[in-house]
Simulated scan of single mutants.
Amino acid sequence: MSTATLSVPRPEVKVRQSVETGNWAGWAMRRLASDRQRSADTHLIKLEIPLLTGIDLYLKDESSHPTGSLKHRLARSLFTHAICSGRVNAGTPIVEASSGSSAVSEAYFARLLGLPFTAVMPLSTAKKKIEQIERFGGRCHFVNEASEVYGEARRLARETGGHYMDQFTYAEQATDWRGEDSIAASIDRQMAEEEHPQPAAIVMSAGTGGTAATLGRYIRYQGYATKLIVVDPENSVFYDSYRSGDRALKGLGGSRIEGIGRPQVEPSFLPELIDAMFKVPDAASIAAIYWLERISGRRAGASTGTNLWGALQLAAEMKERGEQGSIVTLMCDGGERYLDTYWKREWVEAQIGCLERYETVLSQYA
């Protein structure tokens, strides 16, 4: 296996310890808390869809975080968990297996805490993602195949005396799903004054599975009747594992919808918290983000399209049954990260295929 490391100059970050105690962990926790205080809660946007009278569809816009995605919450939780578990101290190198939004957010928090950060990723990773990781002082370490990132991340962490953050294992453990800062609690607060404050369903896709686990646990903690619906893209084994109960399933390829879908069942995916799952065609996901831009002016990443397609399908079923209520889903990140891929029609035609069938379906909602 051949690997290469792209090194960039790191900004000097002065680590200030408590003069009285030399308590780096205490200093680090204050830094993380100050980031949380500076980050205003993300908006909950009500989409106006005349065809769905009596059914209110809401989009929780996580793209407004400082690092531009839902993974900002997860990265802060992962660092908090690692520090409080004694795995990360002053100067500990941080390693993650990710080429996406998780790596961008973890690079941000590593710089905040004065820690070196390396993201292990395939050589095929988009240049835009590499630039974003570097912008926060991270380093990119390349492997030939996507399947090699886990082992290589473990090796780097072991050889450098660092910590492998391992988002796929720790996502559901690290997140404080009962806390007031969780995404579930935020949705709950923001829905309080709406016409249907307790959603009939929350629709979420799975990458690590951590966000779905947070939502599912919080729903049960509050005793709500809200259903947790998880949508899965093509080339992901989560849906098949949910249907069969087989956690050992392996897929042959990777998801074409960045940030979600996995070729193996990750430890943070908790099917027992899910009320229903269904598969969303990749072309439907892309058609849905174009539809969202038409009705709201917002550009999103493809995983948001997966969520939206699922939410709209669910809304259509509710309307057919004569039901009323609310549905909440998430805008995971913004479309500016994907101008050369999902937001380039030529690329979509070559890599995803024809969208016409799904755009026709969505046109009735515009």
Rank of each mutant, 00 (worst) to 15 (best):
R217A: 02
R217Q: 07
A201M: 03
G223Q: 05
E180K: 13
D188Y: 14
S205C: 08
D232F: 06
E180V: 10
A225Q: 15
E180C: 10
F168H: 10
A174Q: 00
A171V: 03
M204E: 06
Y218D: 07
D181N: 10
E195M: 15
A185R: 08
D181R: 12
G161P: 04
M204T: 10
P199C: 04
T175S: 11
T208W: 02
P233Q: 09
I183V: 13
Y221Q: 14
A192T: 08
G207R: 01
R217N: 09
D232P: 11
Y221G: 05
A206D: 03
Y218A: 00
R220D: 01
R178D: 04
A225C: 14
E193C: 14
I219K: 02
S186G: 14
D166T: 05
V203F: 01
I202G: 05
T226I: 03
M204G: 07
Y221I: 05
A212F: 06
R178P: 03
D176E: 15
G161L: 01
F168P: 04
Y224S: 15
R217I: 00
G216I: 00
Q222C: 11
K227T: 07
T208K: 08
A225W: 10
T214A: 15
T175G: 01
H196I: 06
A171D: 00
E193N: 11
A192N: 13
A213T: 05
L228Y: 04
R178M: 12
A185F: 11
K227A: 15
R217F: 04
D232K: 04
G161I: 00
A174I: 03
A171H: 10
G223E: 14
E159F: 09
D181Y: 15
G209M: 01
D176G: 04
I187W: 14
Q198N: 07
A174N: 07
H163I: 02
F168W: 07
T169V: 14
T208Y: 01
E180Q: 11
Y224K: 08
G162M: 00
P233C: 12
I187R: 07
T208M: 03
A174H: 03
G207Q: 00
E180M: 06
W177H: 06
